[in-house]
């Protein structure tokens, strides 16, 4: 089982967390066209490589995290609290 280096709790098993998928900026609601909004809803980079994604430490500190993970090796490059600049 992979481990997520929670910035609050330390290394923890991934089954304590929920993946919330790729981190994407929310378009401006007032100006978003359907194409822009639906790209936000549905499209993904889905790289075979480093991805920036959200994880929620559901069974731990209950903090939302932003994690950089390699999608082939599952190696984790960084993890920080959501909403905090990297």
């Amino acid at each position: 089982m992979i481990q997520i280096p929670c910035p609050y709790c330390g290394l923890r098993n991934a089954n304590e967390f929920a993946s919330t998928g790729e981190v994407k900026p929310r378009p401006d609601v007032a100006t978003a066209t359907p194409a822009v909004w639906r790209a936000y809803l549905y499209d993904h980079r889905n790289p075979e490589g480093l991805v920036t994604e959200g994880w929620y430490h559901r069974a731990g500190c209950r903090k939302f995290l932003v994690v950089e993970r390699h999608t082939q090796t599952n190696e984790i490059r960084s993890a920080r609290p959501a909403g905090v600049a990297s």
């Binding site: 089954n15 993946s19 889905n46 991805v51 994604e53 999608t71 082939q72 090796t73 599952n74």
Partner: peptide, 13 residues
């Protein structure tokens, strides 16, 4: 699996 990955190594869980 519960998160995106290109790994086919599999898991114990």
């Amino acid at each position: 699996d519960p998160y995106a990955s290109y790994s086919t190594r599999g898991s114990l869980e």
